[in-house]
């Protein structure tokens, strides 16, 4: 079981049924991501990016095919078991941050630990350490409305990291941010990648995608390209 694979999707299909109409959103996707990889998923609108992220994120089950996350088959689990997988193995970063408005940064970051049944003191300690990691320890007691967009996204990233997930999933993480702030978030992702995190990011933006080490391109529910990012990266050999 000591596979080096973080994700292993084999012949994944997803078909949405709306009435008599069947929409094949994914039509046989194979994707293997090793631990520590940093992958961007791209593709035109309607190509199946969100559908694939939902399956990777254990928010949805594939129609057929198998999916192993961190060595565990998660393609046929029930809702509560999937919730537990999300809690223990996944961290989500959303385009719209999705922080709890009435709650300060520290408590937002601590939320997954609460659902994991960890005591208040330990929650605060670990949430604080994670905020430190994203450079926001001094804003721990601020509410989301008192933070800039970039800071809010950092809090959201801290929340995604606090339970030490196997995979960090980000759906358009810079979609609501300006270029400068996007660059900040991307350098944070870089640092996380350098620290050994596995990151999967969906984006429309080619320049954002180039921050990853590998770009997977979808079209009509199929992977049409899967390339390592070459060129301007400092460590790539050119």
């Amino acid at each position: 079981m000591s596979s080096a694979l973080a994700l292993d999707l084999a012949q994944i299909t997803k078909t949405y049924k709306s009435g008599s109409l069947e929409v094949p959103a994914l039509q046989g996707v194979d994707l293997r991501v090793e631990r520590g990889e940093y992958v961007a998923i791209m593709g035109p609108s309607g190509s199946g990016k969100s559908t694939m992220m939902n399956i990777i994120g254990c928010l949805d089950r594939p129609t057929t095919g198998s999916y192993h996350l961190d060595g565990e088959d998660v393609s046929r689990l029930d809702d509560n078991a999937l919730a537990t997988i999300r809690l223990r193995k996944l961290g989500f970063v959303f385009q719209g941050f999705n922080l709890l408005a009435r709650t300060d940064a520290l408590k937002n970051v601590a939320l997954p630990l609460f659902y994991a049944g960890i005591g208040a003191r330990e929650r605060d300690r670990r949430a604080m350490a994670t905020l430190q990691e994203v450079g926001l320890a001094d804003r721990a007691r601020h509410k989301p409305s008192e933070l800039s967009g970039g800071q809010q996204q950092r809090v959201a990233i801290a929340r995604a990291l606090v339970n030490d997930p196997a995979v960090l999933l980000a759906d358009e993480p810079t979609g609501n941010l300006d270029t400068r702030t996007s660059a900040d978030i991307m350098s944070l992702f870089d640092a996380l990648h350098a620290g050994g995190r596995t990151i999967i990011m969906v984006t429309h933006d080619e320049s954002i995608a180039r921050n990853a080490r590998r770009i997977v391109r979808l079209l009509d529910g199929r992977i049409v390209a899967d390339d390592a990012v070459a060129g301007d990266r400092s460590f790539t050999s050119f």
Binding site: D79, N80, T84, N98, P112, Y115
Partner: peptide, 15 residues
Amino acid sequence: REIGTRKAIGARRGQ
């Protein structure tokens, strides 16, 4: 959305 976020984070039905 808040409920969706909580569920994505890993909240179970009962919670």
